[in-house]
Design a binder for these strands. Structure first.
Length: 111
DNA sequence: TGGATGACCTACA
DNA sequence: CTGTAGGCCATCC
């Protein structure tokens, strides 16, 4: 069996691998990532992983909640940064939220 | 070991 | 729309 540290690396690694693959100009959701990680019942933990990864080079600004709201913007240092980055990538906003119907990217399941 | 925390989700009033 | 409530799971202390 795996050690706790191994499990933690493994879990974070899954989230990283998915977030890392989010294409330019697209966004995905915590729940979707969680689902592809096999922990669909806990999208929260995905946010936790991103919290640890916010100092990494991951495009965590492309991860929004199920409603298309930028719930994690407060963790970017500057609240407006997240929306700015997305807009600069061509992501369309509707009433302060991401237009998921046009910009949603569904990650592929990890093998 | 167990409670508290969290960048969530769903359901309901 | 807002607020409340429950659940889910990894991590922290």
């Amino acid at each position: 069996m795996k050690n706790v540290s191994d499990r933690h690396e493994d879990f974070f690694d899954r989230v990283y691998k998915i977030v890392e693959k989010i294409p330019y100009g697209k966004v995905t959701t915590y729940g979707l990532i969680a689902e592809k990680c096999g922990i669909k019942s806990s999208a929260r933990t995905v946010g936790w992983a991103l919290n640890k990864a916010k100092f990494s080079n991951l495009p965590c600004h492309r991860v929004v909640n199920r409603n298309g709201e930028l719930t994690g913007k407060l963790h970017f240092g500057q609240p407006e940064l997240m929306e700015l980055l997305l807009k600069s990538e061509g992501v369309m906003f509707i009433d302060g939220r991401v237009d998921l119907s046009k910009n949603l990217w569904i990650p592929r399941k990890l093998s």
